[in-house]
Amino acid sequence: MPDNTVSAPITRDDAYFRLRQEVEEFYYDEAAMLDERRFDEWLDCLHDDILYFMPMRFNVKFGQHAERENTTADEGMSWFNEDKWTLRKRVEQILTGVHYAEEPLSRVSHLITNIQVKEASPSAADATEIKTSCRFFVYQNRVEHETYNYVGRRYDTLSRENGQFQVIRREIILEQNILLAKALTTFF
């Protein structure tokens, strides 16, 4: 499973900007699938070997952030640490029509912004593996008065085969300590 660490800064040449635009389009398509509740279609955006990970985050002493601020994928509990099987189960659950935390369905909008390509290999011009970072603002309105605002960062590794992107690793950094929502029923 690839991690999301970046080895060297990428050169921002024409190939970079072209690739970034392609990535942006992919992200907007993906957001539209989720917001328009085309969940099955969204699953196709995810690589079969995906790691979908949202750590829990701690208040730690200055200087310990790199080491201790977030839970890791390798051990212990996080908010999400799942593979494609589990994500498919989440979609199946919504489609049962009796998943009461999403029945009736919430109204959700994904705003994806600050998109940058951090690494492209073998090169921006013919990349098959791309590391990106972006910000998200996910707005959820539920039933009548329930509203949740999820703001954070996303660090992805995308694979590209025959011009098609898929997410193979997604790390979702929600900017919260104690979770301020009653349930994380939306995808990020």
């Binding site: 509990m77 799942e82 189960k89 999403e102 994380l184």
Partner: peptide
């Protein structure tokens, strides 16, 4: 431990597929 924690995560709490439905009922 890996097997268990992954089950715990998909089952429990606000991100857990089971207990999300509890939260909905407790709220309303």
């Amino acid at each position: 431990k890996d097997y268990l924690r992954k089950f715990y995560m998909r089952y429990s709490g606000p991100a857990g597929m089971t207990e999300q439905d509890d939260m909905e009922n407790w709220l309303y």
